[in-house]
Amino acid sequence: MDTSERYNYYDILEINCHCPQHEVTTAYERSKLTYSGENPAIYTMFNESEARELLKMVEEAYSVLGNKTLRALYDEKIGQKRPIADLSFESLQTESKTVFSTLPKKPSNDRAQFVADKAIEDEFSATTHWDGTMLKKAREYRKLSHDALSNITKISVYYVKALEECDPKNLPAAVYVRGYVSQVAKVLALDEKKVCDSYMKIFKSNLEKK
């Protein structure tokens, strides 16, 4: 018979083409055990080089059938009665890439709409008095909504709003507030230390007023 003929990968692993994925793996492990090393089962039937040849085929079959995407593609091609000779791991892999090349693009970032303004940035760096209103101004300059900021910093929208009010009634203990402010400052590309120190001074005075 023609030894160059290629075989169906399912025949090589001796499995049914409808079998679940875990059976493919079991079949592969068993075949690998059979044709590698000194398994008594191949004694007097296959010599070393034949066993190696078979092992190579088993590995090739599993490289396709062991991968869910490639297996699905392989099944499809077999179903279309494509000659088996065209189907190899390489050809299927290239094909799998072309099929999925038109993935939808990721939604664009919110911060892309931000327009730099030298004057405002200079004002920010000059300011030493950082209260809620200034934070709000910086946020609006960065074109971030409450939600977007909350999304990035993982601070709840409720607290983000309360921070801008500088309202101790709606905010947790000072140590948490400092953490929040420092995170917000980082996202808004402000001087973290300066903003924190200034904000906390105002926050504490508000706290005493109460």
Binding site: R30, S31, L33, T34, N39, A41, I42, M45, L54
Partner: peptide, 17 residues
């Protein structure tokens, strides 16, 4: 366990050979 798996190996060799 290897001995137990031998049956599967023999089965595979029979169907291949």
């Amino acid at each position: 366990h290897q001995d137990q798996d031998l049956g599967y190996s023999v089965k595979s060799v029979c169907s291949k050979y």
